[in-house]
Amino acid sequence: MKNVLTIYFAALKVLIVSSLVCITLLIFLNVVLRYGFNSGLFFSEEISRLAFVWLVFAGAQLMLHENGHIGVDMLTSRVSPMVAKYMLVITQLLMLYVTWLFLLGSWKQTLINLHVGAPSTGVSMALFYGAGLVFSVLSASLIATQLIDNLRKPAGSYRPQRSDEEAHVLSSTETGVLK
């Protein structure tokens, strides 16, 4: 199972890099064609927008997996490990609920726009809203897995991964207060 997840998140990284390269090349080529040759690519804005939407959702999925999102531990660092664990469980349950709401909204928008084509390419607009569907389903499964792992571990065993630089910054500060 770990190999499948490793391959999946490596594929996400490839998708993110590919999207960035695609956006950069399309916009650069369009600018050169417009100013240099008084023409342009009619589809570059739509394809760039589509690549950006998928890039954002893939990046959000990757950061959710790597715990790279912004976290504020001002309160949880001052409570007992058991209370901190329950706070994390509540947070993960709220994340699951919001992901469910996002899934419902994305589903409705995908169905509404299934037969609506983009103005210049004619690509179904459901492809834009489908990114939210994919993100919601995969994120919900990831959050649920993290929730189950959190419930199985004893209180106080959760430690987010930190780089050496972050550890240095943390060691030079008091809990919640900068020196």
Rank of each mutant, 00 (worst) to 15 (best):
residue 2 K to R: 14
residue 3 N to R: 14
residue 5 L to Q: 06
residue 7 I to D: 07
residue 11 A to C: 07
residue 12 L to R: 00
residue 12 L to F: 05
residue 12 L to S: 04
residue 12 L to V: 14
residue 13 K to D: 11
residue 15 L to D: 01
residue 21 V to R: 02
residue 21 V to L: 13
residue 23 I to N: 06
residue 24 T to F: 12
residue 26 L to W: 07
residue 29 L to P: 04
residue 31 V to R: 11
residue 31 V to D: 09
residue 32 V to P: 03
residue 35 Y to S: 10
residue 36 G to V: 07
residue 39 S to N: 13
residue 41 L to A: 09
residue 41 L to E: 01
residue 43 F to K: 00
residue 47 I to Q: 06
residue 47 I to K: 01
residue 49 R to I: 01
residue 50 L to I: 08
residue 50 L to H: 01
residue 50 L to S: 03
residue 52 F to G: 03
residue 56 V to T: 10
residue 57 F to S: 06
residue 58 A to M: 09
residue 60 A to Y: 13
residue 61 Q to L: 15
residue 61 Q to V: 02
residue 67 N to S: 09
residue 69 H to L: 10
residue 69 H to N: 09
residue 72 V to T: 11
residue 72 V to E: 05
residue 75 L to I: 15
residue 75 L to F: 13
residue 76 T to R: 10
residue 77 S to H: 13
residue 79 V to K: 02
residue 79 V to R: 06
residue 82 M to S: 13
residue 83 V to P: 09
residue 84 A to T: 01
residue 85 K to Y: 02
residue 86 Y to A: 11
residue 89 V to A: 05
residue 90 I to Q: 08
residue 90 I to W: 11
residue 90 I to D: 09
residue 92 Q to P: 01
residue 94 L to R: 05
residue 95 M to S: 15
residue 95 M to I: 14
residue 96 L to V: 09
residue 97 Y to T: 11
residue 98 V to Y: 13
residue 99 T to C: 14
residue 99 T to V: 13
residue 101 L to T: 12
residue 104 L to N: 12
residue 104 L to V: 14
residue 108 K to N: 12
residue 110 T to V: 06
residue 113 N to Y: 06
residue 114 L to Y: 12
residue 115 H to W: 09
residue 117 G to R: 00
residue 120 S to N: 12
residue 123 V to W: 00
residue 127 L to N: 10
residue 129 Y to E: 00
residue 130 G to I: 00
residue 132 G to Q: 00
residue 132 G to R: 04
residue 135 F to K: 05
residue 135 F to N: 05
residue 139 S to L: 07
residue 141 S to K: 06
residue 142 L to S: 06
residue 145 T to H: 10
residue 145 T to C: 11
residue 146 Q to P: 02
residue 147 L to P: 05
residue 147 L to Q: 05
residue 153 K to T: 10
residue 153 K to N: 13
residue 154 P to W: 07
residue 154 P to C: 03
residue 154 P to D: 15
residue 158 Y to C: 06
residue 158 Y to P: 08
residue 162 R to H: 12
residue 162 R to W: 03
residue 163 S to K: 09
residue 165 E to H: 14
residue 170 L to Q: 15
residue 171 S to P: 00
residue 173 T to C: 14
residue 174 E to G: 15
residue 174 E to A: 15
residue 174 E to W: 14
residue 175 T to H: 14
residue 177 V to N: 13
residue 177 V to Q: 14
residue 178 L to F: 12
